[in-house]
Design a protein around this nucleic acid. Structure first.
Length: 483
RNA sequence: GGCUCCUUGGUCAAGUGGUUAAGACACCGCCCUCUCACGGCGGUUACAGGAGUUCGAAUCUCCUAGGAGUCACCA
């Protein structure tokens, strides 16, 4: 039997990390087993429609490399893949369930239900529908249907016994019938609820493994009753633990927590995001942490899935992102950095050289802006920056060496790192001081910044001779004034 | 509250009756070094608690505690 998995999100307009991870795992399982992966849009809640929300889903899956064999925008033999285009199908099966006695028409008004709910609450009990309409005779049901009365179709849960199944992650799950309610399968607006739609679609689309969030773990026995009533084979189930923001709260857009788009906007690489979330709830048993999508597909197995919630740790993602940035070829890096350079640089500098010194020092692409701003102009700074204990520099001793350094640098024809470094080293040697005594002040003088990506001579090379000397002159002048 | 599930360092986690209880992030220290970062080396920190089974328990059982999910004409 060929493995078929699916990702079935409801279109909300963004892709949150937990959802993406669910899609990833479903995709990985399918690919690992040489199976098929499909996308289905669950939009049966007509009150919550969001304009063009499916586009975010299409785009994110395409972006991350989670290609689907069937789906709304790619077609397939089991379509349509959007639930709102399958309305008649659900109605048909809802009625079939009624005929089999597994479901029944219910005409109870909102008012009656509310009253019941209130009473239950007063008595401190959990409200459960009382199967009131189950006792209606066939004739009466027909009469009220003919009269055009509003109705829903409810699942008829047996009064006794239990329903159980074996989850591939959580093991044996068993729920007493008495704890299940006669949930609504078909709403009064004619649309199905998730309870009905997921069962019909997963069966019709021949899904072999249902991979979804843990929120469905305890309602799955109810769905199984439907499979049984229809005489359908139940799929295998793989429920996934949640992705948490902290110990007690789930990651959610409502809390302002990062979505996939947000992370991309913050300068994270899609490969790093995918790699990181793959490890949030799964591991291959070994020590490998950096995985390409392809490697993940090869290594993925259900045994590696965790049962406990995982907290989303942006720090580790950030570290991993740094790893991915460093792995980029110079060309790839330049391409990804370009928009940030455009934004950050007002002066014309050699981007290739700049890229070379900055690439190993980045954890996110967005850090480029802050790290290169001194190339545009020297910021306001205090001459206190010339104090450095380890280098044994002070504004006073810096001034003298700066003057000497300036004179030497002016003589350098080949204005490259190596030559510059040699020139400054010579200054240090001549004065019989440690290298830092001259390198530190030079770097401060030409950057006005305590921490820079790269050393004095690397930066001088990028700045160029004219700019370097001019900055040195300004710095010398500034020092003289302050002393 | 009922039901279902979960519980190894701050975080992700390996571990399936006998281990000095891995590794990674973070943190700290040292080295490298023209600052920072990278890299290298080292360090602090964990089996939620309690009973039991067993020669022996992070691993099996039970209880307690904590947490999560669910209990909609949302998915």
């Amino acid at each position: 039997m060929r493995v078929r998995t699916r990702f079935a999100p409801s279109p909300t307009g963004y892709m949150h990390i937990g959802n993406l991870r669910t899609a990833l795992y479903a995709w990985l399982f399918a690919r690992h087993n040489n199976g098929q992966f499909l996308l289905r849009i669950e939009d049966t809640d007509r009150n919550r429609l969001v304009e063009a929300a499916s586009d975010v889903i299409f785009k994110t899956l395409r972006d991350t490399g989670l290609d689907y064999d069937e789906g709304p925008d790619v077609g397939g033999d089991y379509g349509p893949y959007v639930q709102s285009e399958r309305k008649e199908i659900y109605g048909k099966y809802a009625k079939a369930l009624v005929d089999k006695g597994a479901a029944y028409y219910c005409f109870c008004t909102k008012e009656r239900l509310d009253t019941l709910r209130e009473e239950a609450q007063k008595e401190g009990k959990v409200f459960k529908y009382d199967k009131h309409c189950l006792s209606l005779s066939k004739e009466e049901v027909q009469r009220r249907l003919d009269a055009g009365e509003e109705y829903v179709i409810r699942q008829n849960i047996p009064l006794e016994g239990e329903s159980s199944y074996d989850d591939m992650v959580y093991g044996h799950i068993s729920v007493p019938m008495s704890d299940m309610e006669d949930n609504i399968l078909l709403k009064s607006d004619g649309w199905p609820t998730y309870n009905l739609a997921n069962v019909i679609d997963d069966h019709l689309m021949e899904i072999t493994h249902v991979i979804r969030g843990i929120e469905y773990l305890s309602s799955t026995p109810k769905y199984n009753l439907l499979y049984d009533a229809l005489g359908w084979e139940r799929p295998k189930y793989v429920h996934l633990p949640p992705v948490m923001k902290d110990k007690t709260a789930k990651l959610s857009k409502r809390n302002g927590d990062a979505s996939y788009e947000d992370l991309i906007a913050k300068g994270y690489l899609k490969e790093a995001i995918v790699n990181y979330i793959a490890l949030l709830g799964w591991n291959g048993g070994g020590e490998q942490e950096i995985y390409s999508l392809k490697e993940l597909a090869e290594a993925f197995s259900l045994e590696g899935l965790s049962r406990s919630p995982a907290i989303f740790d942006i720090e580790k993602l950030t570290w991993m992102n740094g790893e991915y940035i460093r792995k980029l070829s110079p060309e790839e890096f330049l391409e990804k950095a370009a928009p940030h350079f455009d934004k950050a640089l007002t002066r014309d500098v050699d981007r290739e050289k700049l890229a070379r010194i900055i690439q190993p020092r980045l954890e996110t692409l967005n850090q480029i802006e802050e790290k290169v701003s001194f190339f545009n102009e020297v910021p306001e700074y205090s001459t206190d920056l010339y104090f450095n204990k380890k280098m044994k520099t002070t504004p006073e001793n810096s001034l003298d060496l700066l003057k000497e350094a300036r004179a030497e640098l002016e003589k350098v024809g080949d204005f490259t790192n190596d030559s510059l470094y040699q020139a400054l080293l010579a200054v240090a040697q001549k004065n019989e001081v440690k290298n830092g005594r001259v390198l530190w002040p030079v770097r401060i003088a030409i950057t006005g910044t305590e921490v820079t990506p790269g050393g004095a001579t690397e930066i001088a090379e990028i700045l160029g001779k004219t700019e370097t000397l001019s900055r040195l002159d300004c710095a010398i002048e500034k020092l003289e004034k302050s002393l």
